[in-house]
């Protein structure tokens, strides 16, 4: 398929922005500047980037605990993201959620999720709403390999199939559920094989190939928009970092990680762009510099922002009142 230069460079730029956000988050966490836990998307940037290029603003996603990449690719404000990681009042959740609960309902991000597979039922509900409203929006529900072993995954796929909902179930198989290898915890070789049980298409794609992800998701999104129902896509990738920053990683060897790093999506796509003569060294450098600057600005914004007033902990439970005083 032919794409213009800007479209392809856009993929590269988004992946580089996600990478820079994650590298900075890791650095800040190790400097003890960020409270809580951080789960990094390094090495998986192609999935969010390729998938989201098919979405409009009125489409929805549900994300995961490893959700920074999804947010950025869907168009979130990295300043508000970084401020939330710091627990500041200017963050997306005013400091009430942190990394695992970032959401931006105004751009269709129905939440990262601290619960494995927690987003799938929510995605199904958004799909039901779209169908009731007779719109042509779609929902992409991102989830990991571990989530495919939860009941919610099976309930959600059956339900979406029965009602032919416009939901794309996008599995990011990064080979590890926390410390456990997918091969040791999962009954099938390919998570996409589970689609058969729900009578929907199941597709496997190289999750480190941004163009391939884009194409596969495009087909699923087109089908969903035109009333053809859900698709299960398994994007095979590899979790370069530990489950969380600080994970002692006792379950694999460094040599395995080094080998997988050869296939990481950004340098792969970069080679393709150079081969196609689409990008120059100067353009590449400029994209990285811009991304670094953007993240630097986000860090400045977050650091200059105030912590929330302690009493603000008693707000936001309900729409119509504070809800704590009874």
């Amino acid at each position: 398929m032919q794409h213009d230069k800007e479209f392809l460079i856009g993929f590269y730029r988004t992946m580089v922005r996600i990478r820079n956000f994650e590298l900075k988050a890791e650095e800040l966490f190790l400097q003890a500047k960020l409270p809580g836990f951080i789960h990094l998307y390094i090495g998986e940037e192609a999935i969010a980037t390729g998938a989201m290029a098919n979405l409009r603003k009125d489409d929805y996603i549900t994300s995961t605990h490893r959700g920074h990449g999804h947010m950025i690719a869907k168009g979130a404000d990295v300043k508000k993201m970084m401020a939330e990681l710091y627990g500041k009042e200017t963050g997306y959740c005013k400091g009430k959620g942190g990394s695992m609960h970032i959401a931006d309902v105004s751009i269709g991000v129905l939440g990262a999720n601290g619960e494995v597979a927690g987003g799938l039922p929510i995605a199904v509900g958004a799909g039901m709403a779209i169908k009731m409203q007779k719109k042509d929006s779609v929902v992409i529900s991102f989830f990991g390999d571990g989530a495919s072993n939860r009941g919610a995954f099976h309930e959600a796929l059956n339900w979406a199939s029965v009602y032919r909902l416009p939901v794309i179930f996008l599995n990011e198989n990064n080979q590890f559920a926390s410390t456990e290898r997918v091969t040791e915890t999962t009954s099938v070789q390919n998570i996409a094989d589970r689609a058969v049980g729900y009578n929907i298409p199941g597709v496997i794609v190289d999750g480190n190939d941004v163009m391939a992800v884009y194409e596969v998701v495009k087909e699923a999104v087109d089908r969903a928009r035109s009333g053809g129902g859900p698709t299960l896509i398994e994007a095979k990738t590899y979790r370069i970092k530990g489950h969380f920053v600080g994970d002692p990683v006792l379950y694999r060897n460094e040599s395995e990680v080094n080998e997988k790093w050869q296939f990481e999506p950004i340098s792969r796509f970069e080679s393709t762009l150079f081969e196609m003569g689409i990008i120059t060294d100067a353009e590449k450098e400029s994209i990285w510099k811009q991304a670094e600057q953007e993240i630097k600005n986000a860090v400045n914004f977050a650091e200059k922002s105030k912590y929330p007033e302690p009493e603000s902990a008693l707000q936001d439970l309900f729409e119509s009142d504070t809800g704590y005083d009874y």
Binding site: L110, P121, A123, V124, G125, G127, M128, A129, M132, W159
Partner: peptide
């Protein structure tokens, strides 16, 4: 869970 998604949508 779908009730949450449907209400957000």
């Amino acid at each position: 869970g779908s009730a949450l998604g449907a209400s957000l949508a």
